[in-house]
Design a protein around this nucleic acid. Structure first.
Lengths: 147, 147
DNA sequence: CAGCATCCTACGGGATACTG
DNA sequence: CAGTATCCCGTAGGATGCTG
């Protein structure tokens, strides 16, 4: 990823199930490209669970990010259909960000990655390998900080 | 990702289950960093399924990659414990690459990403959301090109 | 408040050439 | 065969400043 490169030119003929090694790699690359960006994941995890935050909330939640970057990455995710942007026509301006259903659906996939990472030292391999064996709770994030 | 940056400084105190929004994001970032690199995924998918290939095999399988890049990315994945490198002491040199168990374990996770990507237009949402509901076959790649 | 616009830099990675 | 070494460029993304 990293590069805009592409050139992958996927066959784009399959429904979704059958992949050659190349098309599978290309597919995953495509998917990862949507998540590429220094802040996308942090934003994502702050929005998981149906949370809706204003721009300034996100700024506060992620102090290290610059306005430019925050805006940019939010815009990209909006274009990609991951984030829903709601503008409340009023002064002072108020813009809220939340996840689309598809965006929410990312959670289990990221969960799988987390699980995989945890597997490195944790040789619960055999059992844990079937990612969604135990009910995938679409959470991955413990609800710390109760309101 | 993209950048070497880091600065995430994960708490590194949890077993593997409980995450704050930040630590979860950091965890996924860590995981994705291991996959970052223009050729890692293609290599990975060529090695999935217990396949063992020589350097030249990979060169042939991935014509677009340069020797430098192929070597570099293989080295990185080796350092990360994803790929196993076997040197056969002989002339001419012969080096084989295969996945470690942990490397293999990446398959379901990538599968989850593929599934998610497929979900974009395919609103089989409700059912498909539980990633591993149907038996995860640790394949993701249809065995095309029979020997 | 929620942003664009601009400038600048560091790093990923391509091309090419050389070796044990 | 299986790499290393060198050079060079494009782009992500940080800093900073201006607006509806």
């Amino acid at each position: 990823m990293t590069r805009t490169h592409e050139k992958v030119s996927a066959p784009a003929g399959e429904g979704h199930a059958r992949h050659t090694r190349e098309s599978a790699a290309a597919g995953v690359e495509q998917a990862l490209k949507l998540l590429d960006g220094r802040w996308k994941l942090v934003i994502l995890f702050h929005l998981f669970g149906g949370r809706v935050l204003r721009f300034s909330d996100l700024e506060r939640a992620i102090p290290a990010v610059s306005q430019k970057m925050l805006a940019q990455q939010l815009r990209q995710m909006e274009r990609d259909g991951i984030v829903r942007r709601t503008v409340h026509q009023q002064v002072p301006p108020k813009v809220e960000y939340g996840l689309t259903a598809w965006g929410q659906a990312l959670c289990p996939a990221l969960d799988a990655l987390l699980t995989w990472a945890a597997l490195r030292d944790n040789p619960t391999a055999a059992a844990a390998e079937s990612v969604g064996a135990s009910p995938v709770r679409t959470s991955a994030v413990a609800d710390a900080e109760p309101p």
